[in-house]
Computed example of a mutant assay.
Amino acid sequence: MIVVAGEALIDLVPRSAADVRAGESGGGGAVGGAGGGAGGPLPSLPPLLPRPGGGPYNTAVALGRLGTPTAFCSRVSTDGFGAALLDGLRSARVDTSLVQRGPEPTTLAVASVGGDGSAGYGFYARGTADRLFELPPQLPPSVRALALGTCSLVLEPGASAYEALLRREADRGVFTLLDPNIRAGLIPDAGAYRARFAGWLPSLSLLKLSEEDARWLGGVPSGPAAVVLTRGSDGLSVRTRAGVEVSVPAAAVDVVDTIGAGDTVNAALLHRLGAFDALSEGALDALDAGRWRDILGFAARAAAVTCSRTGAEPPYEAEVA
């Protein structure tokens, strides 16, 4: 089993033209838009579609859809959004027994999509349930890997609990993946975060960075057994401690938006590494260029499927194969 730990939230995603047409024919469910009422229509507000999200949440759902036994470890609100988040995990066959619950509201992330499909976010996270995550007991012996990242390692007091989870499980030999997925607007002290990030590196087996993450951090660090770099339309690359360097192109696709694409890459990497029985640092060191080309190619195809759909909708394994 793979455990994914971190935030679950609701993305408020701009609706596509197809979504709008569906809503006009009875779909509904959007926030904003040109609704009437006493104040009259508000044409300047784009209609927003609530979607389950959060980098770790998306990674867990993607792993479940790919067929890898997965559990989610987080703290989720008891509100309606929290119930929907748990329903999404269960629909993907993700184990929710490690999920803590609380009455605080669910974090909201308002997404904006550029002309090239790239996504930016504004967060409403003050006093929300996922920030109050507490360190759980030691994970079950069946756990093969632990994946973390995004807001969960930034927002206190939960960030310290997730960091403690990372260090504890790494110290007992669990394979670890980190995707920092930098959201600069949530980081009050960039220097302190960079120093903290450097302190995580000895506990990591696999580090996944976007080009934007690497620039913000000041470069691609060394330390983990492998570092995978995503480069958007230019594809993916890996550099390993054993000296292997491989790049693959992005899979061709008509991009709707890139929401959840990096999270899908995380899941696809773990899923394919599991297929090669390579969820250990020693196994990563032994992978040759051909195996890495296979792993990165699978991740590129999976991310392309996600980019072809509105919001974070990762593929099932049959869609990638």
Rank of each mutant, 00 (worst) to 15 (best):
G26Q: 03
P47Y: 08
C151K: 01
P69W: 06
L165D: 03
A5Y: 03
G40A: 08
S280W: 10
L287T: 05
A214W: 07
V227P: 07
Y57L: 15
F276H: 15
A312F: 08
V253T: 15
D288L: 11
D79H: 10
D19W: 07
G191W: 12
L108N: 05
E281P: 10
L153D: 00
W200C: 04
R172P: 08
V220Q: 05
C151Y: 09
T150N: 15
L177Y: 04
V253L: 13
V228Y: 03
V305C: 06
A278H: 02
T150G: 10
R144A: 15
G6E: 08
T68G: 04
A261P: 06
D294S: 12
D171E: 15
R75S: 10
S222I: 07
G185W: 00
A300V: 08
R21K: 12
S233K: 12
R126I: 00
L279A: 12
L45C: 09
G80S: 14
R183D: 08
L155K: 06
E317F: 11
R183E: 07
P249S: 13
A111P: 01
A302V: 10
G262S: 08
V143I: 11
G114W: 00
A83W: 02
E24R: 15
S97V: 07
V13A: 02
A109D: 00
L287G: 00
L139I: 07
W216R: 09
D213H: 11
G262E: 09
A286R: 14
S280H: 01
D11I: 09
D213T: 08
L207Y: 02
G39R: 14
T70K: 09
P46V: 10
A30N: 08
P103N: 11
S210K: 00
E156C: 04
P221R: 09
L287D: 01
E24N: 13
T106A: 06
R196C: 09
D277R: 13
T107K: 02
S142V: 10
E211F: 05
Y162N: 00
A250Y: 04
L287K: 01
I259P: 00
D179T: 14
G218V: 02
D179S: 14
V3Y: 12
A195W: 03
G232V: 12
R215L: 05
F81S: 10
W216E: 07
R239M: 03
V238Q: 00
G40K: 10
W292Q: 00
G23F: 09
A34D: 14
